[in-house]
Design a protein around this nucleic acid. Structure first.
Length: 880
RNA sequence: GGUCACGUAGCUCAGCGGUAGAGCACUGCGUUCACAUCGCAGGUGUCACAGGUUCGAUCCCUGUCGUGACCACCA
């Protein structure tokens, strides 16, 4: 006996335990050729499950389960990411709470601490994903820092270096003076803040001044030029003259550069090549010196006058402004709002600074990546994201690969004392290279020092789809599962990750890393705010799973998976999901109560079912299956979920179950159960727990069945067709005259119910039908028509008596016995609606152009109008 | 400044060349033996605005307004 309520807490872990082995078996199973592979975006080891993960995982899992049920060799490749900077920050903070500064520990000990912490927390998030039902193979979990991955990263770096794509260069980068590392421009956000604009006079000649505007007066010590626009008539005469930097004796030229905007500031601006991105470019164009005036903590260095040395930027700024004011070199100060770059992770103010870093030349890789999407080898869903992707790749900058932190893949480059670099996947090989270079045997190679920098986390992530399959070895897995099929992720990492995987994938494997990129919507809170810890509006998926059940959460997320739109999720939506799960439970209880057992010999698709109602529900089932398949294949998980909802509630419960309440025959019992089990199959990808549980409950006695997890959807019909898909339009096999009549009489009962509602009848009524072609059908199907129409009896007569309620469905008239006075307004309203419909149709039909353009549709409209006119005429004829 | 979305019932959102749908909310009825985490019935709309294409536009095109996101810039 099923319990009164579905207790998700009781069964979820059991289902997970039972599934484990099968999930990994289907991956290893070699009997089938077609594979379906998803590389899961590896969550950070620092992370715990949030709704974004949950959403992405559910979408991936629906695909995995769907494909697994369809016989593919399915691999959901799990992994976790070492998340360089993010993790280093967290562990450093933990150490600080113990009163230890991470740098005191020394590199080796610090890394040991991180590993320790990784062992503690690394598994949590995967466990949470499994709780969410994600059918990943836990035997195959990979970590971006595990030995094989590290080797692959070193190999990849070395190859790119050899091919001349990786180089070391002094370029301007975003420098985080707190973490003391370069960071990617993708990790820097511009935040709007209040600031000031200082108009400063630069002395020119004996008594002249040039006024420039700046928000960063303290950088003037690094100035190498003032710039005006070459076409700016006001200042043309100044080009080539020299000015003196205030507070110093340094003299710099006035140059002409297109970058200068005559409208902005004073029309003249200072050029500080080592500390501003635009100025850096100008500096390169005009071959200006790159004078670095700060140290790694953004304190002014020895290049500046003594009194300013060692001061942090903000202090130096005030002091410079003071000094300038004393010398009356400040013309005016404006309060402005401007944007200031900050590191997303640390919150630190970013200093653009010229430093020595490793770069990857990306132009060629970007071109390859653009082409792969242009020619359709990779498809974005929704397609609009290709624009974002293209735009970024077309304006791509060299990728700064190096980070001055400790946690990550150390750059595989060793230096000799004379500065000679040896890039090799291992130290051993670097020594060999050095031996060759120095023309000595290995033992006599002078001491080599490894580059202390580590690689940007996204470098290893960029190799992930093939590294997880064993690359650079030519493994069987790689041959079998690569390219992978679908990548599911959020739009926020198209630049960080998606494009890098495509670039590096094409470069190293000569093939795309995946064929489809499904960009899932961003989860926001009920008010449309981005969820974030600082706002305190984060909803914990574990809380939702505990309270409403994992299936409820999954179903709700699926209904919200609308392409191209952010979703707003509040608890109330999950409640709706839970209610639907309860509905399924209750349907199951009815099936059980009705003693509808499953029997494997009973074939609902075989065409042997006789009762019209049973044939009808099977036809609906086939349509439902076809629709569901279609929606999943088109990544419309929202429509797929809707389909499930509608079929179960509107079709199966509201009509079929209601109708069969009076049936206790063998065929109906078997059909009801079989159809319900078929429904469970189709719903399984989105709600795996309740479906698996009920599947077992109903098939237990038959022994032969395995888990629903691997139960194929394919039925006789689709097997016959050889397509594996059953589409709704092709379901004629059980759609015949009887089914049409069934549809019709269901419509009649709906009309009766509607009338009952409007009039407010409580008791059951008696229906009269004029004798005709349907007499036999009515006789055979009276039982369920009575149920659905809330009727007492149906009587076939030759003519209707006076009074009562008459109504028309299509061309046929019906009569309900009813002696009380009824309000005519109900019928007036019906007649009005009919009349306006007829008028509209009439206008359409008269349209000759319409008739010519769409003759079939036009003919349908003609028929429809005739029907409506009959209905109206009959209503008019009723005497009240 | 550039790009891309979005504007449909009170709310959240589907739909998309033949004048509209769901869920929630709301109203009425109902505890008839699957279901009150419920059932039955019901109402609800200048489909942001203005032009254009079309026999016909909520749907396609252009523009306007509004909202949001991303990128760039910010002397």
């Amino acid at each position: 006996m099923l319990e009164k309520l579905f207790d998700h807490g009781k069964i979820e872990s059991k289902v997970i335990d039972k599934s484990k082995e099968i999930i990994s078996k289907t991956t290893k199973n070699n009997s089938r050729k077609e594979t379906f592979t998803i590389t899961l975006p590896p969550p950070n080891i620092t992370g715990s499950l949030h709704l974004g993960h949950a959403f992405t995982s559910v979408i991936q899992d629906m695909l995995l389960r769907f494909k697994r049920q369809h016989g593919y060799v399915v691999l959901g490749q799990p992994g976790i990411d070492h998340a360089g900077i993010a993790t280093q920050i967290i562990v450093a903070n933990q150490l600080r709470e113990k009163g230890i500064h991470w740098q005191q520990l020394g590199r080796e000990e610090f890394i040991a601490q991180v590993w320790k912490w990784k062992e503690q927390s690394g598994g949590t998030i995967l466990y949470q994903l499994v709780r969410l039902g994600t059918s990943i193979d836990l035997d195959r979990v990979r970590f971006t820092m595990d030995p094989a991955a590290s080797e692959a990263v070193a190999y990849a770096f070395t190859r790119l270096y050899k091919d001349g794509l990786i180089y070391r260069d002094k370029r301007i980068v975003n420098w985080d003076p707190v973490l003391k590392t370069a960071v990617s421009d993708l990790e820097v956000s511009n935040k709007t803040e209040d600031g000031k604009m200082w108009y400063i006079r630069y002395p020119m000649g004996q008594s002249d001044f040039i006024t420039i505007a700046t928000t960063r007066p303290e950088t003037l010590f690094g100035d190498q030029a003032l710039a005006v626009h070459p076409d700016d008539e006001r200042f043309k005469h100044l080009i080539g003259r020299k000015v003196r930097i205030p507070l110093t004796d340094r003299v710099i030229p006035i140059i002409a550069d297109e970058h200068s905007d005559p409208q902005k500031g004073s029309g003249i601006f200072k050029v500080t090549p080592a500390h501003d991105f635009a100025d850096f470019e100008i500096g390169v164009r005009h071959n200006l010196p790159m004078m670095i005036i700060m140290d790694e903590s953004a304190c002014l260095n020895n290049e500046v006058p003594e009194e300013f040395r060692g001061l942090p930027v903000s202090v130096a700024r005030a002091k410079v402004v003071n000094a300038l004011e004393e010398k009356r070199l400040i013309v005016r100060i404006e309060n402005i709002v401007h944007s200031v770059p900050r590191n997303d992770r640390s919150g630190a103010m970013i200093e653009p600074m010229v430093t020595n870093q490793w770069f990857l030349e990306t132009k060629r890789l970007a071109d390859m990546a653009i082409k792969a999407v242009e020619d359709g080898r990779i498809k974005f869903i929704p397609e609009q994201w290709t624009n974002t992707y293209f735009e970024w790749l077309r304006n791509i900058q060299p990728w700064c690969l190096s980070r001055q932190i400790w946690w990550g893949h150390q750059i595989p480059v060793w230096y000799a004392e004379n500065g000679k670099m040896f890039c090799a996947p291992t130290e051993e090989e670097a020594i060999q290279q050095a031996a060759k270079y120095f023309e000595v045997s290995k033992e006599f190679v002078p001491k080599l020092t490894r580059d202390p920098d580590v690689l940007d986390t996204w470098f290893s992530s960029g190799l992930w789809p093939f590294v997880t399959l064993g690359w650079p070895e030519k493994t069987a897995d790689l041959a079998k599962h690569y390219p992978t099929d679908v990548l599911v992720t959020g739009f926020d990492i198209i630049f960080f990750w998606v494009s890098r995987m495509i670039m590096l994938g094409l470069y190293f494997t000569k093939d795309v890393p995946f064929r489809t990129v499904y960009i899932n919507p961003l989860v926001r809170d009920e008010k449309g705010q981005k969820m974030s810890k600082s706002k305190g509006n984060v909803i914990d998926p574990l809380h939702l799973m505990n309270k409403y059940g994992t299936d409820a959460l999954r179903f709700t997320l699926a209904t919200l998976a609308i392409p191209g739109r952010d979703i707003r999720l509040g608890e109330s939506l999950v409640e709706i999901g839970r209610n639907f799960i309860t509905k399924i439970w209750n349907a199951a209880k009815f099936i059980e109560l009705k003693e509808c057992f499953f029997e494997k010999e009973f074939d609902i698709y075989g065409g042997e079912i006789e009762a019209p109602l049973n044939r009808w529900i099977v036809r609906k089932l086939i349509e439902f299956k076809g629709q569901s398949e279609l929606h999943i294949n088109e990544y419309r998980f929202d429509l797929y979920a809707q389909c499930i909802y509608k079929f179960l509630k509107d079709t199966f419960c509201d009509i079929y179950i209601e109708a069969i309440k009076s049936c206790n025959d063998f065929e109906t019992q078997r059909t009801a159960c079989a159809v319900f089990l078929e429904f469970l199959k189709v719903a399984h990808p989105v709600i795996p727990f309740i479906t698996e549980f009920l599947w077992e409950e109903f098939t237990r006695t038959q022994q032969v069945r395995g888990m629903l997890l691997t139960e194929p959807w394919a039925d006789e019909l689709s097997v016959q067709r050889g397509t594996g898909t059953s589409s709704g339009t092709d379901a004629n096999l059980s759609y015949d005259a009887t089914s049409k009549l069934t549809d019709y009489y269901i419509a009649v009962t709906e009309e009766i119910r509607s009338l009952r509602g409007i009039i407010g009848v409580k008791e059951k009524l008696d229906l009269l039908v004029i004798s005709g072609e349907d007499d036999e059908f009515i006789a055979r199907n009276t039982h369920w028509i009575l149920n659905l129409g809330r009727l007492n009896s149906i009587e076939v007569v030759d003519a209707f008596p006076d009074g009562g309620i008459r109504f028309v469905v299509k061309n046929q008239e019906f009569y309900l016995k009813y002696s009380n006075e009824i309000s005519r307004t109900v019928f007036d309203k019906k007649m009005q609606t009919l009349q306006s419909e007829i008028d509209r149709l009439a206008a359409k039909i008269q349209n000759e152009a319409y008739k010519a353009a769409k003759p079939a549709q036009w003919a349908e409209d003609v028929t429809l109008r005739e029907q409506k006119e009959v209905e109206l005429a009959k209503l008019k004829a009723v005497n009240f």
